[in-house]
């Protein structure tokens, strides 16, 4: 008899997935199952926190090394 596990399926590109896997590696309380390179099953109560952390991480990743000048010259 098959078993069913409840959770949230996340579909994302591999780069985003690797960030999530890295976030999970700290406390192992986000991912239930690593499905494939673009899919993860995660705990429903962690999705909100995950989105927050992902946002923080994306801000870091995409932050320019030099502050942008206010003037366009």
């Amino acid at each position: 008899m098959p078993r069913a596990t409840g959770g949230i399926l996340i579909e994302c590109e591999p780069a985003i997935k690797s960030i999530i896997v890295h976030l999970d590696s700290v406390s192992h309380d986000i991912i239930i199952e690593d499905l494939d390179e673009q899919h993860l099953l995660v705990r429903p109560n962690m999705v909100h926190l995950l989105k927050q952390k992902l946002e923080e991480r994306l801000k870091e990743t995409y932050r320019p090394e030099e502050p942008l000048a206010d003037s366009d010259g």
């Binding site: 078993r3 596990t5 959770g7 399926l9 996340i10 946002e55 801000k59 995409y62």
Partner: peptide, 30 residues
């Protein structure tokens, strides 16, 4: 502006669906 752009980035790059993962089937036919 950058914050708004990042929000869009995340929302477009990640889709979530609530549901159930099925496993442990008796056969490939099942």
């Amino acid at each position: 502006v950058d914050q708004i752009r990042l929000w869009q980035l995340e929302n477009e790059r990640m889709r979530t669906t609530a549901g159930y993962l099925f496993r442990d089937f008796e056969s490939p036919a099942e």
